[in-house]
Amino acid sequence: MTEPAPAIRVDDLKKTFAFGFLRRKVQAVRGVSFEVRPGEIFGFVGPNGAGKTTTIKMLMGLIFPSGGSCELLGRRVPDVHAKRRVGFLPETPYFYEHLSGREFLHLCGRLFDLPADERRARADRLLEEVGLAGAASRPLRKYSKGMLQRLGLAQALINDPELVVLDEPMSGLDPIGRKEIRDLIGGLRARGKTVFFSTHILADVELLCDRCAIIVGGAIRDVGPLEKLLSPKLLHTEVVIERDGHAEERRLPPGDDVQAFLREALAAGGRVVSVTPVREHLEDLFVREVEADKARQ
């Protein structure tokens, strides 16, 4: 049996923007390559201005690459057949202000050639799922930012896509909303869908992703499962001791004898409040990469 085509394949993708009167050049994406396998949740992580949105726009056929190539579901972008099986949430979901949420979902359903009863059923179910059932007939110009974001997610799912591409799905959402969206993405995974999303919120990546790519300054720094990207070694041990009514925090480097330190502290009349071994988090990795990038410049 042959291996299934990757859901997304990006090969040495490049984009240079020219802007302003002098056509000054900005290299937003400098030769990015990665693959997203069918059925996985893939995080695309990077700081502001790293080139996440630019890469995603090339994937979606909104802008044309200056170099390299990309494929969706085994077909070179842009391809109408692949587009049928893909859902997309743009970074700034602004829709037609005179339409209501339900009308907009119906319009999207029509663009996928869904029959009327199917459109109605899916629109109602999705409005329910993203928590907009009560606002379905309000015009979109009266939606809040978070409500537009939710509607954006609903329209991305109207065709029951195999692959969902989300540009910052959590932005503009309150903590409850973020949890709901996380659950929704988890639900997509359970149904065998592939999810590719960009974010700079590291907690979301740690909670959701099977694998992720880290992009800094338009170039990929790392791709892989989170456990592999994070170095498993102990960074330090954080010990909090209470003495004479006030707490004191100490960070013991990996080589230190924690037991001996605790015995000493107890003998001196202290009380042990907590002992925490600290391993690398995604955030540390992120900071490390961004700093390495700065050092290179």
Binding site: M60, G61, L62, V80, H81, K83, R84, V86, F88, P90, E91, T92, P93, Y94, F95, Y96, C108, L111, F112, D113, G152, Q155
Partner: peptide, 14 residues
């Protein structure tokens, strides 16, 4: 300008 296009171009239309 309003980026309403962003939702449409990725839909299966030319």
């Amino acid at each position: 300008e309003r980026k309403t296009l962003y939702a449409f171009i990725p839909k299966p239309i030319h």
